[in-house]
Write a protein that binds this DNA or RNA. Sequence first.
DNA 1: CTGAAAGCGCTTACAG
DNA 2: CTGAAAGCGCTTACAG
Lengths: 347, 347
Amino acid sequence: MVDVTSRRTGSRATMKDVAALAKVSLKTVSRVINEVPTVDPELVERVRKAAAQLRYQPNFGASALRRSDGRSSTIGVLLEDLSNPFSATIFRAVEEMAVSRGVSVLGGSFDEDPRREHQLTMAMSRHRVDGVIIAPASRDHQYLHEEQMAGVPFVFVDRPPHLLDADLVMSDSRAGASQAVEHLIGYGHRRIAYVGDLTTIFTAEERYNGYVDALHRAGLEVDESLVARDLRNIAAAETRAGEILDLANPPTAFFCGQNLSTIGAVRAIRARGLQHRVGLVGFDDFPLADLLDPGVTVVAQDPVTIGREAAALLFARIDGDESPSTRKIVETTFLTRGSGEIRNVVS
Amino acid sequence: MVDVTSRRTGSRATMKDVAALAKVSLKTVSRVINEVPTVDPELVERVRKAAAQLRYQPNFGASALRRSDGRSSTIGVLLEDLSNPFSATIFRAVEEMAVSRGVSVLGGSFDEDPRREHQLTMAMSRHRVDGVIIAPASRDHQYLHEEQMAGVPFVFVDRPPHLLDADLVMSDSRAGASQAVEHLIGYGHRRIAYVGDLTTIFTAEERYNGYVDALHRAGLEVDESLVARDLRNIAAAETRAGEILDLANPPTAFFCGQNLSTIGAVRAIRARGLQHRVGLVGFDDFPLADLLDPGVTVVAQDPVTIGREAAALLFARIDGDESPSTRKIVETTFLTRGSGEIRNVVS
DNA sequence: CTGAAAGCGCTTACAG
DNA sequence: CTGAAAGCGCTTACAG
């Protein structure tokens, strides 16, 4: 049985304790723990036994403090919102690569708040992380230059660095958005609404630009009454999409710049029973999009690849890669499921 | 403009540097950084200025190494799968409380692999985290007793500790499952299938038990041909649910023990066009469940409250609360949306 | 209110 | 192949 009365003693075995038990020097214990090959096998055995007996766990912090490379075996992954499937999938992809290297991951969410970005990156600095993967909320990243100078690599995901030289992995938002809108135009739509995220977000801006590009290329004007931006969440998107649907001259289709915007628009459309009459294409896929009626046509991003590529870049930098910074574009995939293939029969 | 050529110098200001610039002792800098009130305001000002000028960031690792409480300002949050909305929501709830205390969060996913649980908890130990919130994959947690003895509190979420005395926050799976099955029985169903997660998972077991309880209370027997367990993902659940639907004597309703199982069953039912004829209630809510046709009736858990309560407990323990361990049950909510209110017209 | 010395647990740099 | 000394950046325990 377990002794459940004694909650804590506060003691932890150190290398010194292991050395004493194994009757070797502290330095020999250090060699064994760090798997330095030039140690007498018999001593290795003694140290291993003593370490196991004392349940010795090395102290990463103490180790990092003294070692020349200062490695903490920790990285930071700071994204928009870890409970959004896009961020969560990137996080998991990074986590897999980190675990395989024995590296732990500090996670954080910005919720589009630049102050929180500063707060969390500062925390990463204080923890002396070996590197950071970041989807920034702010639009000025000069302040991270200090960290880079101190040897901490940054890999940006989903949004590019501004006034900072750093690696980047993201989707081609503008092209993907254009493709989506052209698809709707191809189905006869001329009045296409736009519902999107905060305009401070680079990708939201790009997706709006892609929407405008496609309209212009088709000789169509942007009708401001059909444009709803700066929508932070599903509820806001639903409300604004509803208002647009209730216009005297409503749109025949929607392009939505982000997964929460899409879900909000879907709700507004369904609330009015228009889901089989109003076209819809969303940017970024989401779970169950194919199970709705109609299925939701989307420009799917590939967050697994984004996360993997970002992690691969980060660990290469941590391992000493000093080559010029990279800008990696991950392909989007157009998934037709029904909502984007509703032909306009009005005009 | 930013100098983007120099990638790193490797240098970081230390307290010593700040002390030299401010012309005070190292100890005075330490006092200012730690906001000890008894420092001459003029010296505080000088130190603050010097620290800002040198972009000084305290080294948490070095601080933790020397301080008597050994605090690293880090906690671990180890869950089943951070990309599942249930885990992700718990993580975010914990993150909020941690950020407000200036604590960073190490995140990890077990994917129901006990070896990974050992690996990640060992990593937490090496990072000397101040506490851990854990939804364990293993069924024997004696090995964590060492950590507890060293003063690291553990709060279990979703699954209870076994052979270990620790706090717990979870839903009442058995009661919630019973309620769901009784609901289906109330709509005239007698042949109710069960589709659920790995039997090694405590909650999966409990939800199955709740299913059996409800059947027995209604005088019904468990028909093994209608029971599908140990399903790890949506695809497996879909396949098995489909096989059950294709039986010569199929069920008239499903109870599903977890969100991925539910989604798999929904897919199988829809693939056969039976969504308005076969009843369905799932355990654990998921995004868009209300937008499906019919909406999916669920026993909703409250991961926000689970996360908050777990974090509150953990931080209380970190702050020295030595009271006996707590077992906190968070209420589930029954959400009727249509799929569970399909009346059995067959028998 | 301020500071010089010692030491947290480990790795480095060196000597044997 | 092994070990004694010094030091990473900070806080403690103490003296003034």
